[in-house]
Design a protein around this nucleic acid. Sequence first.
DNA 1: AGAATAGGTGACCAAATGGTCACCTGTCAA
DNA 2: TTGACAGGTGACCATTTGGTCACCTATTCT
Lengths: 105, 105
Amino acid sequence: MDDDAVFKALADPSRRLLLDLLFERDGRTLTELDAELEMTRFGVMKHLKVLEEAGLVVARKQGREKLHFLNAVPIRQIHDRWIDKYTEHRVSALLDLKNELEETA
Amino acid sequence: MDDDAVFKALADPSRRLLLDLLFERDGRTLTELDAELEMTRFGVMKHLKVLEEAGLVVARKQGREKLHFLNAVPIRQIHDRWIDKYTEHRVSALLDLKNELEETA
DNA sequence: AGAATAGGTGACCAAATGGTCACCTGTCAA
DNA sequence: TTGACAGGTGACCATTTGGTCACCTATTCT
């Protein structure tokens, strides 16, 4: 939905690290994630909150633990709606090459 | 080179707008770009500086004017090195579908 | 030469950001 | 049932960020 929130969420290296960790293995708990960052639990909580609000992380509570899951959909969205536009030149470069070859042949 | 600078540069909507403007038409001057944003010249200068430092904009000085050009390479880099990893699931989803259809047939 | 034009610098400011801590609640296990 | 454990809240703080302004330099036009 909100592209800006996603871009802002991705702008911090700690948050990208959290996404990488969740990509590697989903459903981790806060303290589990905390163990991987050089930061107190509170800092990690704040980052996870930002990620949740951007829709990049979805969390489910189980007993006294909170399990965190990666949701890649918003990344795909900014990819399709924004980034792709800047990267598709490569494709047209290939098409140009194809056309050129066909004309030569 | 520096992924973090690129992500940070992309995190601001004014800067993304600047990139969109340059995507539309390259080689614009500062005052030309300034005219499109609701901000003073100085604000735009700062944003352009951030974009330059991230390598997303390259500028050439011509007389008393400064011409700004878009460089999409860093966007492609974060795409290939980071974003693609989260979006390629779609490809495997398509492959799964393909396999499923082949098995059914 | 003199005025207008395009851009640059450094100081400054308010608001957002990244992080810690004291303290509190709910849940599990001995 | 009592202690340990997982998580949450609000206050607080330093730094960064997004933006303006006064003033300055270099180039162009008449």
